[in-house]
């Protein structure tokens, strides 16, 4: 329990620092957000007026404190670009991205774990070699290119997918899910290969270990030794790997959202950057940071749960 509190405290502190760093960083940027919003034709007065409105003329410390006092209450200001509260803007899109990430996660692990075990079982045989070459090739395809290939195949050749027909999950969950299948596959495919390879190597490493020899010497058949002993041990590194995988999925979704015109936080981020919409970017950075940190925490808990060596160890 104390451990959980400690981790939560460190979450808050890390978020605080990240917000401070982003704030300072954006302050140092040469460009002017007011200028970007109004375009180059704007007069000096117009720009000055907007700067005043956005509070850009106040000193940095004052602006930060103001922002912070509002942020802790959940108010991240208004978007420069859309002129609506940032929270409202992010809410819907965050649901989309999280849904996409969740679907990708399922699409990765459901096939990857049995495939990985199979690859370990057939190690050295032709099945293993084919899967090895295949996974190398799939891993080499950049997610956005994979997205384009999938759109081509399903959208135009098979005609069962209409690119651009995105629906928010908050509007129509079923339609939205149907639309997100392809983007999720585009994210998942290279990662399936990765997880599969990782699990295979992990299982092989475990089967070479001494305790497997001991299990066989105590009368286990090789198959029982694999399932009763090696599998559980092999899953431990896979769990750590999976927390990293979630970051990778988010990375992938930022790019793939662009390919499939999915209205998620990735797309919002990209338009935000080109429009210098700092309230949006700051809020998004913190939002993703919180998710990543929480996922890492959960990963740590899971790790402790499966590995008794860590359970009784103080941190």
């Amino acid at each position: 329990m104390k451990y959980v509190l400690k981790r939560l405290a460190s979450l808050v502190i890390t978020l605080f620092f990240i917000s401070l760093v982003t704030f300072i960083a954006f302050d140092l940027i040469p460009g002017d957000s007011a200028l970007t919003s109004l375009g180059t034709n704007a007069t000096e007065e117009q720009i000055e007026k907007l700067r005043e409105e956005r509070g850009l003329n106040d000193p940095l410390s004052q602006r930060y404190l103001k922002w912070l006092s509002r942020a802790v209450r959940g108010d991240f200001g208004d978007s420069y670009q859309y002129k609506i509260p940032v929270t409202e803007l992010i809410g819907k899109r965050a649901v989309t991205t999280l849904l996409l990430a969740l679907m990708s996660f399922i699409f990765i692990y459901v096939p990857a774990i049995p495939l990985g075990m199979l690859a370990a079982k057939f190690t050295g045989k032709w099945q293993d070699r084919i899967s090895h070459v295949g996974s190398q090739v799939i891993m080499a395809i950049p997610p956005f290119f994979m997205g384009i290939l999938l759109t081509a195949l399903f959208g135009v050749v098979l005609n069962i997918f209409q690119p651009g027909n995105f629906v928010f999950p908050t509007d129509d969950l079923f339609k939205s899910l149907r639309y997100l299948v392809l983007p999720a596959i585009a994210i998942a495919l290279p990662k399936i290969a990765m997880v599969m390879k990782y699990l295979r190597n992990s299982v092989l490493e475990e089967t070479g270990k001494d305790y497997i020899k001991n299990a066989v010497a105590s009368g286990s058949t090789k198959k029982t030794a694999l399932w009763r002993h090696a599998f559980k041990n092999a899953m431990i590194p896979v769990i750590t790997f999976s927390t990293m995988m979630i970051g990778e999925i988010l990375s992938g979704s930022i790019v793939v959202e662009q390919v499939f015109s999915v209205q998620g936080i990735g797309r919002l981020m990209i338009t935000g950057i080109s429009m210098r919409d700092y309230p949006v970017i700051t809020a998004l950075v913190l939002y993703v940071a919180a998710i990543v940190i929480i996922i890492n925490m959960l990963g740590d808990f899971a790790y402790r749960l499966v590995d008794p060596r860590l359970r009784r160890q103080k941190l």
Binding site: V292, I293, N296
Partner: peptide, 16 residues
């Protein structure tokens, strides 16, 4: 700990 793409995006938001 952060997704690479996100970090690059933030960076580019700063540097252009």
């Amino acid at each position: 700990a952060f997704p690479t793409v996100l970090m690059v995006l933030v960076f580019i938001a700063i540097t252009g």
